[in-house]
């Protein structure tokens, strides 16, 4: 099988870019063949991650890639920034972290609705979150 891997880079600097990032993500998801509900889930996860970039780092980017593996295709989205990073990733990933307040990062939610999720962050060196959803 041909290694189908097209990619798309979206700069995230303003809140309108959050909308752009999730719309691009959804378009790629549709091309790759994700079901409509899965397209919505991926778009929602991108929205949560991109908003964190605007709110906490000010500037970053989303890299949206169509990927393929034996017999299946999917969309890989890497959202990264060079902001202050996350001190306590475990806490940020726990559901309680966002309780009540407006400080929730939407990370636990985003993790729940994608097939693969990983996050790397060091204080002062930014955050990189990768999410993948298979068709």
């Amino acid at each position: 099988m041909a290694d189908l891997r097209s990619s798309l880079r979206v700069t995230i600097a303003r809140d309108a870019d959050v909308v752009a990032a999730r719309q691009r993500g959804r378009a790629v998801a549709a091309e790759v063949g994700l079901s409509r509900p899965d397209q919505a889930l991926l778009a929602t996860a991108i929205s949560e991650l991109a908003r964190n970039v605007v709110n906490y780092a000010g500037r970053g980017e989303a890299l949206i890639e169509a990927v393929s593996q034996v017999g299946r295709r999917g969309v890989l989205v890497t959202v990264s920034d060079n902001g202050p990073g996350i001190d306590n990733i475990e806490a940020a990933l726990s559901d309680g972290f966002s309780t009540g307040g407006s400080l929730g990062l939407g990370l636990p939610g985003a993790r729940r609705i994608v097939d693969e999720f990983d996050i790397e962050s060091k204080p002062g060196e930014g955050v990189r979150v990768r999410i993948l959803k298979w068709a």
Partner: peptide, 14 residues
């Protein structure tokens, strides 16, 4: 609210 949006919200706990 669209069907797939409703489902996403529920899965996100919104």
């Amino acid at each position: 609210i669209q069907p797939d949006v409703a489902l996403s919200m529920v899965l996100l706990g919104l």
